[in-house]
Amino acid sequence: MSGNGYMIEVSNLTKRYAGHVAISNLSFTVERGEIVGLLGPNGAGKSTTMRILSCFMPATSGTARVAGLDVFHDADEVRRRIGFMPENNPLYTEMRVREYVKFRARIKGLYGAKMRDRVDTVLQQCGLTDVTKKMIGVLSKGYRQRVGLADALVHEPELIILDEPTIGLDPDQIRSVRQLIKDLGKKHTVLISSHILPEVEMTCSRVLIMRGGHILAADSPANLEKALSHENQIVVELAAPIEDLTICWEQMAEVEHFDIAPIDSDYFRCSLTPVNGADIRPQIFNMVKERGWTLRELSRSRYSLEDIYVRVTRPQSEEELY
């Protein structure tokens, strides 16, 4: 076991299928206790990365280590340390909830009192206590997802890998699953994948944005936002003569670029790009006051993670953040 404390170490990982490359030269690390989100559009290579980490299939080249163990050579040991919930959360629908979790606990090497104890704990933890005798096939999607989570947790793995854990859930269920994931982060290392942004933004301490088998950006959601905040915009909505407005923005030194769009009869919506991302809202306010125009909105829009995601994963532009 390597003592550097990384839970996941991936270096130069490549997976080629016949005819196309799913991931190429992927490298990243995840420290113990982190909740990391893999974010990217469909086909970005998220599931492939997770399948390799969970020893379901080998990589074409490169290495991946979990808790210091190679996923190919020490596959059995790695599998013992991982709780994996694949995409779409496949379950044996003809089994009952408790029966299924017990079965999974057994094949993961738990028996007797310890097994029963763990099964009861995870059923409680995942809020499944009132459906333990129900068949999985009749459960709602939210409950099934929790069964999948209970299965991933039952053997107390060091690393939990969840592929699209909230896909297809209604907003209430999404919230409860997210809360569960956040709670897991207190004891385990968690790697989740998603193509939904707010999910990752809310639950993860770090985000890896993927596209076309590459990692395009890797940082905390806050840092990613900061990195792009110099490109913010100022939105002004006001009633003024259009000619005056144009001259006024042209003369203002801090404004690099502007757009004016009429909205109502009198009002115009102006989007201003300030030089170096300066906050010029006070100047604008003073100017409007001096001229006696009517101002009804003055705001500064910052790039959200969503904008970053859209920018980064846009297929045409090859610009990279780092």
Binding site: R51, C55, F56, R79, F84, P86, P90, L91
Partner: peptide
Amino acid sequence: TYETLMTTP
């Protein structure tokens, strides 16, 4: 379910 099965030890 093959994937869930084969990712256990």
